[in-house]
Write a protein that binds this DNA or RNA. Structure first.
Length: 855
RNA sequence: GCCGGAGUGGUGGAAUUGGUAGACACAAGGGACUUAAAAUCCCUCGUUGGCAACAGCGUACCGGUUCGAGUCCGGUCUCCGGCACCA
């Protein structure tokens, strides 16, 4: 055995050992209890960063821990391999996106292996391979058949710099989520996936996501944005048509003093004669600058009071939400209030606070709103509202809605903020959308048996805009699957979020080289043979038991995945609805108070770290320095501390190597050690020394602490702290006789077992040095003995009037009366009490005594 | 503005059900070993007063409940994250 710990030798050695023995290969075995541990797969950008190290270290500890507990663990890894950086690299450096991507994958895979992550690489998927994206296309066709995929012309978010469309979720403060350039509106024909079909289900079942952080669930709920309201028709004065508006405040209907149309509302074009003015409003559509409006000169009739009110076009009214038209109640909506002030429109109060006395008739008549400095948006009592005057807001909402419905003037509706998912991208490096355009037959889906539609490799990357697929003659021209005539392929590709919406399912199906074992193809019913020895892998492995990743995907990827899982369920392929049972969102890795980034120059290179300190140290530090869900402040000094800790363990084993590695000197099981430990209770017994019994107890306490800390939402930092305490205890223990050494060995073995999920290499090495043949990762997780966890003596804290006044060592089996007597008998305490009267004594067994005294 | 979350030593962080605030680590200071340094080991380490035993103060701030509050309740401030004209 080497005297010094040398990670450079040890880590590659054990990585090779695991690989050669295929220790982490997983098979679908119905008799075993399963655990699916998944970390978000990376985009192969070139190199991994510290965020990956942290993410994958967390996942790996969980996977290794569950494996030791006897679970059949699925722990796969793959590549989110389509995307724009590959294409940008092609434009900039002339490398084909495919080559660039595969080279990055190969390098990053070697990095992940250097971290000692226990993946089953036989299940590796890369989304840019035809074997993978074939199924993107298959899902698309299925959705097309079910009416869940459709094409429509609409205004879309367009990024000039990326020359492509962005989904709403990819626009952050009017900027592109990737390149940060300003997003403009452009009218285009686009493919959409009908996620709104599942809006209600995604919302209502989000309450069942009890294993998710609450904030993620709330973010999704807000994103779906359900609201109940009323649609009401306002007849246009002098025309046959009416305008349908949507409101969540029917109680304020009598306060409407004008009506606003979205500039994109079909009627806007007809009611406005000055098209140039309308264009000006459209230019400010949806922008967060000042409100801009345009008087159409037309009027409509408020059906509640038959009042004539003007119709405006307003830039802030969204066509995508509700009906694209609103009634404006400036007295009770701040936006309408601002608009009314700007354009000098009347303000009429229809609701007053319950505490305010009713205005006299005279005041009410005039509208009473001119005195307002801002809108009163809360609920209250209705005034000037015809027969509804005097009602409370909450009652009036229902009553007025019934009235409107009864008169046939409108209906109650539920609206969602969630929009359908636009998936068309005018880009090359993505999944081709499998449809063709035929002059005779129109839009024709590519037949399932012709999938995949292969992305052609012979294209040029000029970067001058437009999809390279438009230039590929061989790809573009095809025949119509329906009539056999000439046809043209769709040249748009899919949003890469489609790829990641079901990759967790792909892992379950893939079992090795090219073999997908794809039970979900065509007519294959998933549960035809429930007793079969090879169960449907989807129903066995799914859902994911633990998903680990960054919170930045709270509404994007995580919502799309929930949507896709439901689509796949409704295709009859699986029987559950939620893909991820438990979700852990890990915090960012920050340095000098900021997220690591090249521009800030505060990045830590994982390659350097692994070379210098090794992967065990890197993993240990990133797990020790903060609990997983919190941001992790990087500290070079802290890494050295973790390294020192591993060296200390090494030194302990080295120091005791001769005594420890003697074969046949296997450590006693806990029963036998319990007997030894018990012997100590008898004061005359010298079976084991006081020191040894303390170490034995500490070992059992540590097994318990580490286990419960991991179970308690993966509090690795405190679990590691407990192991450090145990190592400190071992350090101060000098084994004398063979009994001492047995206990020392027991402590060391358990330390290594408990530490092995965190730092798998050094624990394998030391495990071998103390005389074991098999891999430590195949051992069972240790168990503790509750008898041996318990202390014989405890430190009793004595408080007087809640203030700490003394401490006393007492046997832990004293009765309450005895404890009380000892506390009151303590010399220091009697001094403090003095002549004062003891009013009350509170005894908390095993913890403290509080003596309440008074005059 | 709305919805979340968080404020604890010089620093990262502990304190699991209301019961010893500061585990564990980093940094700092002192010491041992060494010709010297590195490494390692030992000691000190919230703050104020005191040689000391000890005492006072202390978990963003103010108040409340309680024998007892970092933890529960009410209010205030600050920071972070998400959403943001969704009618």
């Amino acid at each position: 055995m080497e005297e010094r710990f040398d990670h450079r030798n040890i880590e590659p050695k054990w990585q090779k050992y695991w690989q050669e023995r295929r220790l982490y290969k997983t098979i679908t075995d119905k008799s075993a209890k399963k655990f699916y541990c998944l970390e978000m797969f990376p985009y192969p950008s070139g190199k991994i960063h510290m965020g990956h190290v942290r993410n994958y270290a967390i996942g790996d500890v969980i996977a290794r821990y569950k494996r030791m507990q006897g679970y059949n663990v699925l722990h796969p890894m793959g590549w989110d391999a389509f995307g724009m950086p590959a294409e940008n690299a092609a434009i900039k450096h002339g490398v084909h996106p495919s080559k660039w991507t595969h080279e990055n994958i190969s390098y990053m895979k070697s990095q992940l292996n250097k971290l000692g992550l226990s993946y089953d690489w036989d299940r590796e998927v890369a989304t840019c391979t035809p074997e993978y994206y074939k199924w993107n296309q298959w899902f698309f066709i299925k959705m097309l058949q079910k009416g869940l995929a459709y094409k429509k012309t609409s205004y879309v978010n367009w990024c000039r710099s990326c020359a492509t469309v962005l989904a709403n979720e990819q626009v952050i403060e009017e900027k592109c989520w990737r390149c940060d350039s300003t997003v403009v509106q452009k009218e285009l024909e686009q493919w959409f996936l009908k996620i709104t079909h599942y809006a209600e289900e995604l919302l209502s079942s989000s309450d069942e996501l009890t294993g998710w952080p609450e904030k993620v669930v709330i973010m999704q709920k807000n994103w779906i944005g359900k609201s109940q309201g009323l649609e009401v028709d306002f007849r246009i004065d002098g025309m046959a048509e009416s305008i349908r508006i949507f409101t969540t405040r029917p109680d304020t209907l009598f306060g409407a003093t004008f009506l606003c149309l979205s500039p994109k509302h079909p009627l806007s074009g007809r009611l406005v004669s000055d098209k140039a003015e309308l264009e000006k409003i459209i230019a400010h559509y949806g922008k967060e600058d000042e409100k801009a409006g345009l008087n159409t000169g037309h009027f409509c009739i408020n059906p509640m009071n038959n009042e004539k009110i003007p119709i405006y076009v307003a830039n802030f009214v969204l066509m995508e939400y509700g009906t694209g038209a609103i009634m404006s109640v400036p007295a009770h909506d701040q936006r309408d209030f601002d608009f009314a002030k700007k354009y000098n429109l009347p303000i009429r109060v229809a609701i007053i606070p319950p505490t305010q006395p009713s205005p006299s008739r005279g005041e009410g008549e005039g509208g009473g709103g001119s005195a307002l400095s801002q809108a009163f948006e809360e609920d209250g009592i209705l005034v000037d509202s015809g027969s509804f005057t005097g009602l409370k807001s909450s009652d009036a909402q229902a009553t007025i809605a019934e009235f409107v419905e009864g008169k046939g003037l409108g209906k109650r509706v539920i609206n969602y903020k969630l929009r359908d998912w636009g998936i068309s991208r005018q880009r090359y490096w993505g999944t081709p959308i499998p449809v063709v355009y035929c002059d005779v037959c129109g839009i024709v889906p590519v037949p399932e048996e012709d999938l995949p539609v292969i992305l052609p490799e012979d294209v040029k990357f000029t970067g001058t805009g437009g999809s390279p697929l438009l230039e590929s003659e061989s790809f573009l021209h095809t025949t119509c699957p329906s009539c056999g005539g000439k046809a043209r392929r769709e040249t748009d590709t899919m949003d890469t979020f489609v790829d990641s919406s079901w990759y967790f399912i792909a892992y379950c199906l893939k079992q090795g080289n090219g073999d997908w074992g794809f039970g979900i193809s065509e007519k294959n019913n998933p549960d035809t043979s429930p007793e079969s020895l090879t169960p449907n892998p989807l129903n066995y492995w799914m859902p994911v038991d633990q998903y680990v990743g960054g919170v930045e995907h709270a509404v994007l990827h995580l919502l799309y995945s929930r949507f896709f899982t439901r689509v796949i369920r409704d295709l009859g392929l699986i029987s559950y609805s939620e893909p991820f049972r438990n979700l852990l969102t890990q915090g960012m890795v920050i340095k000098d108070g900021a997220k690591m980034s090249k521009s800030k120059g505060n990045v830590v290179d994982p390659d350097y770290l692994i070379e210098r300190y090794g992967s065990d140290t890197s993993r240990l530090f990133s797990l020790f320095a903060a609990p997983p869900e919190r941001d992790l402040e990087w500290s070079d000094k802290g890494v050295e501390g973790a390294y020192r800790f591993l060296n200390r363990i090494w030194a302990i084993v080295y120091k005791n190597r001769n005594a420890l590695c003697v074969k046949g000197n296997e450590s006693k099981d806990s029963n036998e050690l319990w007997v030894m430990g018990n012997g100590l209770k008898d004061e005359n017994s010298s079976r084991i020394t006081h020191h040894a019994s303390r170490l034995l107890r500490k070992t059992h306490q540590t097994i318990k602490k580490v286990t419960t800390d991991i179970e308690r939402e993966y509090h690795f930092n405190t679990a590691i702290a407990a192991l450090m305490e145990l190592v400190n205890e071992m350090n101060s223990f000098e084994p004398g006789d063979s009994k001492d050494m047995q206990i020392m060995k027991f402590a060391i073995e358990n330390t290594l077992l408990l530490l092995s999920p965190f730092t798998p290499h050094i624990t394998e090495e030391l495990w071998a040095h103390i005389g074991h043949d098999a891999s430590i990762s195949e051992k069972s997780w240790p168990a503790w003995d509750e008898e041996l966890v318990r202390e014989e003596e405890i430190e009793l804290v004595i408080q007087v009037n809640g203030k700490l006044r003394g401490k006393l060592m007492i046997p832990c089996d004293l009765t309450e009366e005895e404890i009380k007597a000892r506390a009151l008998g303590d010399r220091k305490i009697t001094e403090v009490i003095g002549a004062k009267k003891v009013r009350k004594v509170i005894v908390i067994k095993g913890r403290l005594v509080n003596i309440v005294i008074g005059e």
